[in-house]
């Protein structure tokens, strides 16, 4: 396993469309629920232990079970009741595949797999293991909205990165758990939901003007 390859995969500058997605933060800001660094900390922690947990498990699964993409993809559909979030996940999966095809040799994954499935497949193609796939997935679910918060709210970037540093041990634990469960049936994989992320995404999708795609 190459640590440097993991950095390439998890780099926030990877041209995979991530900068245009706020992970639900734009909607939470508009609803008045995230105004400062403290609110953002609560948002990121909840997102990590719901969306992050699920993404990590499915990225690890897609990395370990390279023939099971369709089952995992359907499993994410069943865990994503918001159609806006299904679209956002597939748009990011499509963008990630485009970037991945330029870097590694990828198997056939369809046009728009869910993002965690695409991420797991990229990790496998890059010679990484399920744990690394899960780390990249869980980290991405919080680093994206953290960056969006800096841009949207003008929050102190040092304070925001301090939040991410405090979440790092939790990301490691989530990734280790995810890597230990890659043989579980898809129905048994984590399904932690976040009602306000679903509802915020549905509302956000109806806005006339959005700065972020989701």
């Amino acid at each position: 396993m190459s640590l440097a390859t993991l950095l390439v995969l998890a780099d926030g500058r990877l041209p995979a469309g991530g900068h245009a997605h706020s992970g639900g933060l734009e909607a939470a800001v508009a609803a008045g629920r995230v105004r400062d660094v403290g609110d953002l900390g609560g948002f990121l922690r909840g997102r990590l232990h719901t969306t992050g947990l699920v993404s990590a498990a499915f990225a690890a699964g897609a990395c370990a079970r390279t023939g099971d993409f369709r089952d995992l993809d359907r499993g994410l559909d069943a865990r994503t009741p918001s159609p806006a979030l299904r679209r956002a996940s597939r748009a990011q999966g499509r963008a990630l595949l485009r970037a991945g095809r330029a870097m590694w040799s990828l198997p056939e994954l369809g046009r728009e797999p869910h993002h965690p499935v695409a991420l797991g497949a990229l990790a496998a193609a890059a010679g990484l293991g399920p744990r690394e796939a899960a780390v990249a997935a869980a980290h991405g679910t919080v680093s994206g909205p953290a960056g969006a918060a800096v841009r949207l709210l003008g929050l102190d970037p040092y304070a925001v990165h301090a939040l991410l540093a405090r979440l790092a041990p939790e990301i490691d634990r989530i990734a280790a758990d995810a890597a230990a469960r890659t043989d579980d049936p898809v129905d048994d994989l984590p399904a932690a939901g976040a009602p306000l992320l679903d509802l915020g995404a549905e509302l956000h999708a109806t806005w006339e003007v959005r700065l972020f795609a989701s």
């Binding site: 939470a28 629920r33 995230v34 909840g46 990590l48 232990h49 719901t50 306000l196």
Partner: peptide, 10 residues
Amino acid sequence: PGWSGAAVLG
């Protein structure tokens, strides 16, 4: 963790 934060129940 984070259940009452802005992502889950706000």
